[in-house]
C-alpha cells in the first residue's frame, strides 16, 4: 500500500497529478457507494434529522446578532453586531439569574445525588424478594408521572386553604404557609420534586451494580466476623464506586440543565426572585412577555449559557475518562 502511494506521488511530480490522484478517489467513492448503498440509505433519516432538527436551530442562533423582527425572519432582519451581548453585561438582572441558576443547580446536586445511593444501600439489605421488589417498583413509579401531574399534586397537597400539609400545620397551632407563592419555599419544593421523581430511578443503576457483587465476598467477610455495617461499607459501597463516580460526573456536567417543564409549571410572578433561572427567563422573554418579545436578546442570553454549559460538559467528560475510565460520549 505504501509503495503504491509513493508511486502515485512520483507520477504526480511529472505534472499529471490532478487527474491521476482524483480518479481513484472518485472510483473509490463510486465503489463505496455501490457496496454500501443500503447502509447509506439506512443512514438517510439520521442525516436529515441531524441537518434539519439539530443544526437548523443552531443556525437559528444567528438572531442573537440581529435585531430580529418576527415578520422579517432570520434572513431578512438587520444585523446588530454584539449589541445584545453588551446589553447582557449591563443588565443587573443577569447577575440575579446566574445566581439563581447556580444555587438551584448546586442544591439539586448536593441534595438529590446522595439519596438514591443511601436508598440503594438499604434496599440491598432487604433479603425478602417480595418486599425488595415491591419497594423498588413503587419507588420509581413517580419517574413515569409527568411534571404536570407531579406539580399539580404537590400544589394540591400544599394548598394553604385545604391542603393536608397546611391542615397539619394549622392543627399544630401555626399559621398556614403559602408554599406556592413563597420565594423562600420555591427551591426546597423544586428539589423535593426532583428527589421524589428520580431517586427510585437513579437507584436502579446502583442496585444493579450491587447484585453483580460476588456472594463469596460476603461469605468470606462473614467468616471473618464482619457485621452488616462493615459489609455494607467495605463490600457493597466499593462495588458501586465506579457507578457513583460516573453518575456524579454526569450530574456535574449537567449542572446547567434544569427541568424547564417543572419550573414553568411551578412558577408564578411572586416567586421570580428565586425561581427565575436563565432558561425560564429566556422562555419568558420570548413567549410570555406582555410587550414585544425580544427574541434576539433571549437568544443571546441563551448562547452564553450554552457556551458555558458546553465547556463544562467537555471538562467533565475528560474527568470521567480519567477518573472513572468511562466516557459519556
Amino acid at each position: 500500500m505504501k509503495k503504491k502511494g509513493m508511486k502515485i506521488l512520483g507520477k504526480g511530480n511529472k505534472a499529471v497529478t490532478i487527474p491521476l490522484t482524483k480518479k481513484p478517489l472518485k472510483q473509490r467513492i463510486k465503489k463505496d457507494l455501490k457496496k454500501n448503498r443500503q447502509l447509506y440509505l439506512l443512514l438517510l433519516p439520521g442525516i436529515i434529522s441531524l441537518i434539519l432538527f439539530k443544526f437548523g436551530p443552531l443556525f437559528g442562533m444567528v438572531i442573537a446578532f440581529e435585531n430580529f423582527s418576527a415578520f422579517k425572519g432570520i434572513l431578512g432582519s438587520e444585523w446588530a453586531g454584539f449589541k445584545w451581548f453588551i446589553k447582557i453585561f449591563h443588565d443587573p438582572y443577569m447577575l440575579k439569574l446566574l445566581k439563581n441558576t447556580i444555587i438551584l443547580a448546586v442544591l439539586s446536586l448536593v441534595v438529590v445525588f446522595p439519596i438514591p445511593i443511601i436508598f440503594a444501600l438499604f434496599l440491598n439489605e432487604i433479603k425478602q424478594k417480595a418486599i425488595h421488589g415491591f419497594v423498588q417498583s413503587l419507588s420509581f413509579l413517580p419517574y413515569f408521572i409527568s411534571s404536570a401531574v407531579m406539580v399539580s399534586i404537590l400544589f394540591t397537597m400544599l394548598s394553604p386553604t385545604n391542603g393536608i400539609v397546611n391542615n397539619l400545620i394549622k392543627a399544630m397551632g401555626k399559621t398556614a404557609i403559602h408554599f406556592q407563592a413563597s420565594p423562600a419555599w420555591f427551591r426546597p419544593m423544586y428539589v423535593f420534586l426532583q428527589v421524589w421523581q428520580t431517586f427510585g430511578y437513579s437507584a436502579v443503576i446502583y442496585i444493579a451494580a450491587m447484585t453483580a457483587v460476588d456472594p463469596a465476598l460476603y461469605e468470606a467477610a462473614e467468616v471473618d466476623g464482619a457485621n452488616r455495617w462493615v459489609k455494607m461499607l467495605h463490600i457493597t459501597l466499593p462495588s458501586i464506586a465506579v457507578s457513583v463516580i460516573t453518575m456524579f460526573i454526569i450530574s456535574v456536567g449537567n449542572i446547567f440543565t434544569v427541568d424547564l417543564d417543572r419550573i414553568l409549571l411551578m412558577y408564578n410572578s411572586s416567586v421570580y426572585s428565586t425561581a427565575d433561572v436563565i432558561q425560564t427567563y429566556v422562555y419568558r422573554i420570548a413567549f410570555e412577555s406582555s410587550g414585544f418579545p425580544n427574541y434576539s436578546y433571549g437568544t443571546a442570553v441563551n448562547l452564553l449559557k450554552s457556551i458555558l454549559a458546553f465547556i463544562l460538559v467537555m471538562l467533565t467528560n475528560k474527568a470521567a475518562d480519567k477518573y472513572a475510565e468511562t466516557r459519556l460520549f
Binding site: 394553604p160 403559602h178 406556592q180 407563592a181 410572578s269
Partner: peptide, 8 residues
C-alpha cells in the same frame, strides 16, 4: 386573602 396578594 393572602393567596390573592401573592397572585395565586
Amino acid at each position: 386573602n393572602p393567596l390573592w396578594i401573592s397572585g395565586t
